[in-house]
């Protein structure tokens, strides 16, 4: 039906309600102009309430200096951003975040791929083997961190005792790099199963006959893997790269929180945890908002770069 654009929403609604229901002309056409909107509203509401609104709030409050007790806010322009750019601590945390994300992504992808390649070759008892590898994925990040904390406990942790066997005094929660080591181990451990699942299904979608053709063409298993299997896995790997970078940047929050929250100061943390720490522990809403805006821009840039630079080299079957 044609509705003149000058009608008000109420008029449109009335028109919509009063219109007799006729059979739609096509399967994808609705007899009332507002019907499709009615279907879209729940999804749009979720996106608006949980993404656009908070984002807009964050951008707005990043220009204000907020009273810690919520009694008022003063417009300070770009001061919050200027503070950030001058902060040595912030720069140091950004550096650690980059290091942490790179190491976690590389290890989680590498180990996931290695396990998938090995599991793909298992013929007997493949089911239980795969289930064992995948099951870690069912553990929530904070629970994984709790398990990790017990493993790395200063007094009774098996990992600490194991390190002691080699004469190394592993002090997670006290020594900066020891804590970083524990964070990386737990984060990688938590993410490997996810990558494993995707790599395994990616491997299994490589046609058997293509592998067999490679078997006739190349003698070395490593050559076959590099020349044939890996390029065919590239779409999976590219997808996982984006997911893993996002994971390392954001989803490791729960792990970091459990490991560092009750520990003495100067612990390694990522930018996301710093946002939380400054905003909710330090009550510096303005500064923390500025940090989250920076983070938002960073992720946007990262995603664009990944798609521009890498996707060109990905072969989609």
């Amino acid at each position: 039906m044609t509705v003149s654009p000058s009608l008000s929403l109420a008029q449109r609604l009335r028109l919509w309600v009063s219109r007799p229901a006729g059979p739609p002309a096509k399967a994808v056409q609705f007899d009332r102009a507002l019907t499709p909107w009615a279907f879209l509203v729940p999804q749009l509401a979720i996106v608006v309430i949980f993404f656009y609104w908070p984002s807009a709030q964050a951008v707005t409050s990043s220009f204000y200096l907020e009273d810690p007790f919520g009694f008022g806010a003063t417009f300070v322009g770009l001061d919050n951003y200027a503070d950030l750019s001058r902060s040595n601590e912030y720069r140091q945390i950004a550096g650690f975040t980059a290091f942490f994300s790179a190491v976690v992504t590389a290890l989680a992808l590498g180990l996931g791929l290695l396990l998938a390649v090995k599991a793909d070759k298992v013929i007997r008892a493949a089911g239980p083997y795969k289930t064992a590898l995948i099951s870690v994925y069912a553990i929530a990040p904070p629970v994984a961190a709790l398990i990790g904390m017990m493993l790395f406990d200063l007094h009774i942790g098996p990992a600490t005792q194991f390190a002691a066997l080699f004469g190394y005094d592993l002090r997670v929660g006290i020594d900066y790099w020891d804590t970083a080591f524990a964070l990386i181990v737990i984060s990688v451990w938590k993410q490997v199963p996810y990558n494993f699942i995707f790599f395994l299904s990616g491997l299994q979608s490589v046609p058997v006959s293509v592998r067999e053709a490679a078997l006739i063409d190349a003698r070395s298993g490593w050559r076959r893997f590099v020349d044939v299997t890996l390029p065919l896995l590239a779409p999976t790997a590219f997808f996982l790269l984006i997911i893993n970078v996002t994971y390392a940047l954001f989803d490791t929050f729960g792990i970091i929180d459990v490991i560092v929250k009750d520990k003495p100061a100067n612990n390694p943390m990522t930018l996301v945890y710093k946002v939380y720490l400054d905003g909710f522990k330090g009550n510096d809403i303005g500064g923390s908002s500025a940090q989250s805006v920076v983070l938002m821009v960073l992720v946007a840039v990262l995603t664009v770069v990944q798609f521009r630079l890498l996707e060109r080299r990905v072969h989609y079957g």
């Binding site: 006959s209 053709a213 044939v228």
Partner: peptide, 13 residues
């Protein structure tokens, strides 16, 4: 030997 497969088995990339 060289083999020709039913579904050709060419390397798609």
């Amino acid at each position: 030997i060289a083999m020709v497969f039913q579904n050709y088995a060419l390397y798609p990339h």
